[in-house]
Every structure is written in C-alpha cells, then in structure tokens.
C-alpha cells in the first residue's frame, strides 16, 4: 500500500513536472517572483517570531509588501495566462501596466506605514 502510494506520488509529481515544463517562460518568471515574495515574507515572520513584534508597523509593512506584491503577481499571472479564456481579450501589456500601477500604489501606502 505504502509502495503504491509513493510510486503514485512519484508518478503524480512527474506528470506535474512534465506538464509544468510546457508552461510558457513568462508565467514561470511570475511563479518564481511569487515564490521569491512569499519566502521573503516567511523569513520576516520567522524573524518576528524570534525577536518579537516591537516595531509592529515595520513588520506589517514588510510582510504586507511581500504578500501584496505576491497577490498582485498572481493576478497578473491569471490575466496573462493564454489558456485562461476569461481574459482572452485583455492584452498582456495592459495587465502588466495594471500590475505596475497597483504595485506603485501599494508601495506608496507601505512606505507611509513603514514609519
């Protein structure tokens, strides 16, 4: 039973990986970017768990900056993905412009909150 499970899992991972290789490079970049943002957020949360939450607004700004940008990146990925029929009419350049604008607004707020 255990054997079958592990082999199944291996098979699953394998199929996932092979499916993912066919993903366009631009989406992979976005995925990488999301991972980068999420890991940065995780490191900050760990730091807060170790040290304490003293400049709490700074911690919040740091984490929200990462999480926010990750969310925005996810939104960008959704809109840019060609297989997503819902945003078929939306040009990826327009999506990117939205992403940049939202990021700028987000970071203006973040900077104001940073103190």
């Amino acid at each position: 039973m255990a054997r079958t499970t592990s082999s199944d899992a291996q098979a699953l991972f394998h199929s996932l990986r092979s499916a993912y290789t066919s993903t366009p490079t631009s989406l992979k970049i976005i995925d990488l970017y999301v991972c980068f943002a999420v890991f940065t957020a995780i490191i900050q949360v760990v730091y807060m768990a170790v040290v304490g939450s003293f400049p709490f607004n700074s911690f919040l700004s740091g984490v929200l900056s990462c999480v926010g940008t990750a969310v925005l990146a996810v939104c960008l990925r959704i809109q840019v993905n060609k297989e997503n029929k819902e945003f078929k009419d939306l040009a990826p350049e327009r999506a990117f412009a939205d992403f940049v604008l939202c990021n700028l607004v987000l970071h203006l707020v973040i900077m104001n909150f940073l103190g």
């Binding site: 970017y33 991972c35 170790v50």
Partner: peptide
C-alpha cells in the same frame, strides 16, 4: 523597547536577500 542583538538582525537581513538570489538564479 527591548531590541534584538544587532548580529541577529543583520543575519535576517541577509536571509531576506536569499530569496532574491534564488529568484535571480531561477531566472
């Protein structure tokens, strides 16, 4: 407020740069 030792903070600053490096490497 009790502030953490400077070394610890600097270490975590380095750690936050790590994902960025990973991002570049991934690229």
């Amino acid at each position: 407020e009790k502030l953490p030792p400077k070394k610890l903070s600097l270490t975590f600053l380095g750690l936050t740069l790590l994902p960025f490096l990973g991002f570049l490497v991934g690229l």
